[in-house]
Design a protein around this nucleic acid. Structure first.
Lengths: 345, 345
DNA sequence: TTGTATGCGTTATCAA
DNA sequence: TTGATAACGCATACAA
């Protein structure tokens, strides 16, 4: 790829590079005639400033890094959609990394991130990540970072989450109000902030309604279908099996649904199911899936906005960082409500 | 973010930058002792070469651009997953752009792409794109480009598609074999290569089985739910409505399913439905969705591999470019087969 | 074996 | 109003 440079223009017009540079940037200390000449030539030969040269000079890249566990997860692809949207309007480019839920991979990604000289980082932690030194180091060195969804208390910066506690509380309470007595909760990785918050919401709802906690009904589970099958089987090996399952993620809910079908356990008759998800197809599942919706797109947008706030004000650091809690919404569909329950609502 | 540079190391060790540079790159013309000294210092202070400086020098960026219509579309997010996988192993970074199915946006994206000096471009065309001059220009200037999924005949380069004709043919024939007589086909944007190929497959299957083509059963449709509702209503306003719908994409199939439910039209009893999709949840829909699976991940991987082939051999251009056709697979589920049909298969 | 000088494309500083 | 020069970080041709 050949690119025309300022030098080329200068040579062609018999000017110095500095004059051309100034003319291009519309400097007022340049002769209007010269300016026009340069502008026209640049236009004609489609001059585009070399952003790499600018990056080197200004020591910034006008790009931001995004590390997510998996791109191919609707929550994250929606979030990235939102991030790209904001970045596009700011003239920034988005560089994508996947941790594949691996701590090692996440650490390597952060190394790439720094070596790439991105101007900021958006990250949602991997399920394996317990130690966040790699991020702390970056942050201490002055890299603007915003955490979203899967966050950590140990990093003092802006964060964006959905109201996991409330969503979880509402979901659980919904199950209680429709008459369920033994409500299981299947959470994702126990390390994750989202898991902890959702477990708290679950427990709080039980407590409010004076339902004793049965430890055997609280499970942590990986996303693999096999893992889910094991957990379901454990739950049903219980002396008094659960009559409802509240899962802490979209993937888990899908896995449960699939396993329950396989085991010939009827939803919602034998067991109610409610997810924590954002799947567009949730309404089309059999049965349609009750769920707590997270605003993935908005979370992405908000995170990106906060990051650009930080990037554009690196000199004056905010005195205090904030954690933004976005709304969740309980959507009741068929997987959690029987015909006979409906009056009760 | 402060970064240690070669200059810093040189100063600290009282060497010249060239010596440090050579030592770092393991040059054989350097004193082993000096080399060790430099290496240790670099290690200790976590020296990372500045890729921007390298880019400027070598006129390449070790990054590739990816332009897709929407990240938040399972097909593309899976493809990007594959792309990222290959790029990661090659030490390249992936810069993401969305065209949002808009031609204008796609053109702007290609401008950003060039200005960013990416080393290559992977693109799947927007639904509005009929003119590909913007891509031809880039390609003529020497930018390695690989098209995937939504391709164009007018650009002579490597392309990766799934076998749309065969998939479409098999899907249609499956409907014929299960006794359907009036099979509608709902395609996406008529400009898209995938639409054309899938329509061909559909027509070929009808022809093979001597079923006359009814133009009123061939529809083109945008992804919006409202657009789909209009098309479904048109189809059912027909004197003899269809008894099967073969949709050319995942989103269309979902929209159809949802609309048919709303209209109280039973699938598969009143009408069979089959999609062209890769949704992981297809099996969990009500009814479970018969579909033609595209290997999105593999398509992404293959495209990226081809792109790196081109990037790493820019000097010797391949004499001929190839279009790689990846397998598709018909998966029969409940949306296309009634109990009574099953013996017939 | 090491050092000096140059250039990648751009802009800022200083001089004219 | 314009030009010469240096600098960003690195690699390399050339010199020592």
């Amino acid at each position: 790829m050949e690119h025309i440079t300022i030098k080329d223009i200068a040579k062609a017009l018999n000017l110095s590079t500095s004059t051309v540079s100034r003319a291009l940037r519309g400097s007022h200390e340049i002769n209007p005639v010269t300016k026009l000449l340069v502008m026209e030539y640049a236009e004609k030969f489609n001059y585009q400033p070399n952003p790499i040269a600018l990056s080197l000079k200004e020591n910034k890249s006008r790009s931001i890094g995004v590390i997510v566990p998996e791109i191919d997860n609707p929550f994250f692809s929606q979030a990235i959609n939102g991030i790209e949207d904001i970045a596009y309007n700011k003239g920034y480019q988005v560089v994508i990394f996947q941790s594949h839920e691996s701590y090692e991979r996440e650490v390597i990604n952060t190394q790439h991130i720094t070596s790439r000289r991105v101007d900021g980082l958006l990250i949602s932690l991997s399920g394996q990540t317990t130690n966040v030194e790699h991020l702390k180091n970056l942050h201490d060195k002055g890299l603007p970072i915003v955490l979203f969804d899967r966050i950590s208390d140990e990093i003092n910066t802006h964060k964006v989450i959905s109201d996991n506690f409330e969503g979880s509380f509402n979901g659980t309470e919904h199950l209680i109000k429709t008459g369920r007595k033994r409500i299981a909760h299947i959470a994702a990785s126990p390390h994750l902030s989202i898991s902890k918050e959702r477990v708290k919401g679950y427990l709080a709802a039980l407590a409010k309604h004076n339902i004793p906690v049965d430890e055997s009904l609280l499970k942590y589970c990986n996303y693999g279908l096999q893992d889910i099958e094991v957990v379901i089987d454990q739950l049903f090996a219980n002396e008094t099996p659960p009559d409802a399952i509240f899962t802490a993620s979209d993937r888990l809910a899908l896995g449960c649904l699939s396993t329950l079908k396989k085991r010939n356990i009827k939803v919602p008759e034998d067991i109610a199911l409610i997810g924590f998800t954002n799947l567009k197809v949730a309404a089309l599942l059999a049965p349609s899936l009750s769920t707590i919706v997270q605003p993935a797109l908005d979370m992405g947008k908000r995170s990106a906005e906060l990051l650009f706030d930080l990037i554009e004000n690196t000199s004056k650091l905010p005195k205090s960082y904030r954690t933004f809690k976005l709304y969740t919404e309980l959507i009741v569909r068929n997987s959690s409500v029987m015909k006979s329950d409906e009056e009760r609502l």
